[in-house]
Write a protein that binds this DNA or RNA. Structure first.
Length: 417
RNA sequence: GUGGGCGUAGCUCAGCUGGUAGAGCACUCGGUUGUGGUCCGAGAUGUCGCGGGUUCGAGCCCCGUCGUUCACCCCA
């Protein structure tokens, strides 16, 4: 009999580590809320066409990493490989782009890419993303980056911020012409030539020495920025400086999704393996229009919750077992006949807002106390014949070991603060 | 899609030149008629990932397969 296993390459979180996952996710979400971003809860599957048009058919993500299938109505459906396209689709569908701008939303949930699993790379992974849609203001570029920065600082996570600008379409086409020309004179193997043909910028982040040295003198997009793009980009840098957010301008940074324009950025942790990007994003000028909405710009990021968790663990930043959300009280019943009483008491305490649990099963007192200890509860109470007939129990402080007598009927009040 | 490492108890792992499986932790019970954490004692636990091959004999060698992991590629 074969045991059924999780599908290959998915990331799963179960106790006790799930607590850490939850903690990271909550911290990231709080940072988004703090800056006025509101929830967008979206489907995990969309029409395949959305990603082909939105993300771009030439990208690896779309051309070879999507989970695509036909539904029962013969429609081509794809499990979302990223979040921005779905947000745009929804904004357009419900006419949010016709209302007050910018539209500021956050989303969180699972994403899917059919890649070969690796450290920090999963087929189902989790992201927290935000989007500020509708205005091309550099102030928004900075706000978006600041949301991530604030979250990382709250976690105590050290990271590096790389930024660059991809400029507007005129900047890019002028640069591309020169870059393709430059690359055509290089000595490259067939696979690399193929990659260059799909997206010449790719060669900038090749890890091989021979490519890096050949690309050393390649024309940089930053040198081709239009007046307007250059002005906006320097404003972004100035503001980041004012907010004391450290960054490095990296003109060789490459992003994998086609829709990026203008300011783009990447958050990197050096505590991770080869998959060191813990988040990234940028501006997208043409995306809304491409998907049939107003011709307005937007900017956003996606943060990899799995990788941030890994990085935090590597830095030893986790809350640990101790801590806040442990139980207030743990009840132990002595004798089978007193169980019903304890079950009722437990339920009453919970109704009163006290986090409590009890020893289930038929264990000896020693075992039950052990269970109380494991639960992390702050207090424990043993309830047997004596307690029920006298109405008085010993409330034991698990940390100090001290007990004090309390009326059973007044237990709830002991925790009311 | 390509390449390397690894699959043995719930977990982390040991297992000699092939001779029929172990440790620590965790778990259960007891030492303490109704009070946990430390200590002491006892106990339970394995299709040695799966399939095939070589051999008198395979956890160990060979082939395949699945899983996992790391890297390329790509990205969160």
């Amino acid at each position: 009999m074969n045991e059924i296993q999780a599908p290959k390459g998915v990331s799963e979180y179960y106790p006790p580590r799930s607590k850490n996952f939850e903690f990271i996710r909550e911290t990231l979400i709080s940072a988004a809320r703090l800056s006025g971003y509101e929830l967008m809860e979206l489907p995990v599957f969309e029409e395949t066409e959305l990603f082909k048009r939105g993300v771009g058919e030439s990208t690896d993500v779309v051309s070879k990493e999507m989970y695509t299938f036909e539904d029962r109505g013969g429609r081509s459906i794809t499990l979302r490989p990223e979040g921005t396209a779905g947000v745009m689709r929804s904004v357009i569908q419900y006419n949010l782009d016709k209302g007050t701008l910018p539209v500021k939303v956050w989303y969180s949930g699972p994403f899917f890419r059919a890649e070969r699993p690796q450290a920090g790379r999963y087929r189902q992974f989790y992201q927290l993303g935000i989007e500020a849609i509708g205005l091309p203001s550099p102030e928004l570029d900075v706000e978006v980056i600041a949301v991530a920065d604030r979250a990382f600082k709250k976690l105590g996570l050290s990271y590096r911020l790389d930024i660059t600008s991809l400029g507007d379409s005129a900047s890019r086409s002028a640069h591309r012409k020169d870059l393709v020309d430059f690359i055509s004179k290089l000595d490259l193997d067939e696979a690399t030539q193929k990659r260059a043909a799909i997206n010449p910028l790719r060669l900038f982040d090749d890890k091989r020495e021979e490519i890096i040295s050949q690309m050393a003198k390649a024309p940089l997009l930053l040198d081709y920025l239009s007046m307007e793009s250059a002005k906006s980009f320097s404003k972004v840098q100035e503001l980041l400086g004012n907010l004391e957010i450290a960054f490095t301008v990296n003109p060789r940074m490459v992003r994998g999704l086609d829709y990026y324009t203008g300011t783009t950025f990447e958050f990197v942790s050096d505590k991770l393996g080869a998959q060191s990007g813990i988040g990234g994003g940028g501006r997208y000028d043409g995306l809304m229009a491409e998907l049939g909405g107003s011709d307005i710009s937007g900017i956003g990021f996606g943060l990899g919750i799995d990788r941030i968790l890994l990085a935090c663990e590597a830095e030893g930043l986790l809350p640990g077992e101790n801590d806040s959300n442990s139980l207030d009280l743990f009840l132990i019943s002595l004798g089978e006949e007193n169980k019903d009483y304890v079950v009722k008491l437990l339920n009453d305490l919970r109704n009163a807002g006290i986090s409590a649990d009890m020893a289930y099963g038929d264990r000896a007192l020693k075992g039950s106390m052990k269970a109380a200890d494991k639960s992390g509860a702050k207090f424990a109470v043993v309830i047997g014949d004596g307690e029920i007939s006298s109405g008085i129990c010993a409330l034991k402080d698990m940390k100090s070991g001290q007990s004090k007598e309390v009326r059973l009927s007044a237990l709830a009040q002991e925790f009311a603060i």
